[in-house]
Amino acid sequence: AEKWDMPMAYSASNFHSENGVTFAECVGAGTNGEITIEVHPGGSLFAGADIKRAIQTGQVQIGERLLSGHQNESAVFGFDSVPFLAPSFDDSEKLYDAAKPKIEALLDEQNLELLYAVPWPPQGLYFKKEVNSVADMEGVKFRSYNNTTSRLAELTGMLPVTVEAAEISQAFATGVAESMVSSGATGYDRKVWESLTHFYEVDAWLPRNYVMVNQDVWADVSDANKQAIMTCAAEAEARGLQASKDYTQFTMDGLAEGGMTVQPAGDALMGELREIGATMTSEWLEAAGDEGKAIVDTFKAQ
């Protein structure tokens, strides 16, 4: 029997982690105990940023990572984080289908085998006040954590402030930041209703977590066990997608229960945001080159 260590970045109670644990159990049963997977959630083995390299170099056999975190390395990794390119669960699935061959090829160059990917709930906008148009955002201090979010702030006239994930709650409580783009899950987990008042479901993008295995390790797995693992992975992908949808509703209800106004953005605001999205899509296409163009073309053709 062989034991695989599987680092995951998010806390044990997060639906991605729970899904990972179920996947691990499935693999244990499916391979008749020949391969067992031990999940290490909450960044307790490696922090999120280090997980991809850890798998690549064989420090662990398998792991989960938000690949859009690696867009500096290759813009293509950011396909699932282009604002307003695929703003719904259904569109996001289509986009993923279009991108999958490219992503798999890219991962293949990096000694990685993709097993499954699960989207986060859609990203919405958090504010401390009612916002009906981009003009209302003028001068609001907006939490940015990467180039995409900085650019989004710039295009909407907000002031980007850099706040690290660990300091989110504090930054809102003390007014260092007044707004952010994030999933309902993050706001719910960080209990942002203590400081923020409005959540707009703009479904800006649905970034994905990817579970990947080291190719040298994968090559040594027997065909029967590969088959069993891929079956478990397909099940995990479907289960994770459903959990993400369920969790979206759950966190929306939770935010509302916490006292926030939770609603879709008004038509005027949404229209303006789509325009900004188009600008950002063309900027991403410049960075992502032909590969990126192929993904978007395939997606649009569906």
């Binding site: 001068g139 201090k141 940015s144 180039n147 900085s150 002031l159 980007p160 402030v161 850099t162 690290e164 260092v176």
Partner: peptide, 16 residues
Amino acid sequence: AQMVARWTGEIFPGAP
């Protein structure tokens, strides 16, 4: 520099 940038509405990308 990062704090001053924020107070004055500028950004200093990558400071952390």
